[in-house]
Design a protein around this nucleic acid. Structure first.
Length: 271
DNA sequence: ATAATCACCTGCTCGC
DNA sequence: TGCGAGCAGGTGATTA
């Protein structure tokens, strides 16, 4: 469930149910995610109080008194709050049981996600240290992208989806933001003007904020942690609409592959 | 340094 | 009804 608004939605949904509570037990039914879950997860977490739930890029950071759980949902991961009556299903790989009886349940049928543990500053962790700026901060602005892009010739869409450039812009929002910015996903980053980048960064922020406000995008298997789906999918103008008419000019949208990812755009409106 | 490809998994949909 | 092909929201590692 991956794009940034979905992870933020999960964080918002999870936090009130788990903050300040103590972990009584954790059960791992399948250790094999993208990386191996720590062998002794249960003893690591036992009797620790959860003191913060934050996010960096698409990583969810659950901070306890002694360290931090680093959780990524991959392509299909979910985190839900359930109670003990709800029997685990086939892909419910981890349960973290709290003193209030709530269970944080990690579900991921593709197992592309990860659950890691660190006692150091999680932002210095190997997976997080190299990441680019958060898109919703002031660091991320037109001038930043302009400076970063002067020598880049790969398609702008792949540039935007590069974590070292900016985090949190996945396939859906890259398609959407480029459509609204009237920039072709195939355009070379080095050819795009500062003015265009000013527009693009504003639109990325606007698109992400709107999606967060609506609780993320509902796709095949996204359910936020309190069980409510998000409603952003109804508003998508590019992603998933290849072959359908452009919402502005009605010309049929083009669908191509870039870096193995489905890319949709309007030949007339985006250049 | 940059760019393209691979790899990790399961489940669903489509066409024959 | 069955079966193989292709596809899915991510991203680190590997290869040119």
């Amino acid at each position: 469930m991956p794009e940034l608004p979905e992870v933020e939605t999960v964080r918002n949904g999870l936090a009130p149910h788990i903050l300040g509570h103590t972990i009584k037990k954790s059960i791992v039914r399948n250790y094999q995610l993208r990386w191996h879950i720590p062998k002794k997860l249960n003893s690591i977490l036992l009797e620790q109080k959860i003191i913060a739930v934050t996010r960096r890029a698409k990583y969810l950071l659950i901070k306890t008194e002694f360290g931090t759980l680093i959780i990524h949902l991959g392509m299909s991961g979910k985190l839900c709050i359930v109670d003990q009556k709800q029997k685990p299903l086939k892909h419910d790989h981890v349960d973290i049981i709290l003193d209030n009886g709530n269970i944080i349940r990690y579900t991921d049928h593709r197992r592309f996600g990860c659950i890691l543990w660190t006692t150091d500053d999680p932002l210095e962790h190997k997976l997080l240290a190299h990441l680019g700026p958060e898109p919703l901060t002031n660091t991320f602005k037109g001038k930043y992208l302009y400076d970063k892009s002067r020598k880049i010739k790969k398609p702008i869409k792949q540039f935007l989806m590069d974590n070292k450039i900016v985090v949190g812009v996945g396939n859906i929002y890259a398609n959407e933001a480029l459509f609204y910015s009237k920039i072709s996903p195939l355009a070379k980053p080095c050819d795009i003007t500062l003015e265009q980048y000013n527009t693009l960064t504003k639109i990325i922020k606007k698109t992400l904020r709107a999606a967060i406000k609506q609780g993320g995008t509902t796709l095949r298997d996204f359910v936020s942690s309190d069980g409510n789906p998000g409603y952003f999918a109804q508003k998508l103008v590019a992603y998933g609409r290849g072959g359908e008419p452009c919402v502005k000019c009605e010309k049929l949208l083009i669908e191509v592959k870039l870096g193995g990812r489905t890319t949709v755009y309007c030949e007339d409106c985006q250049s």
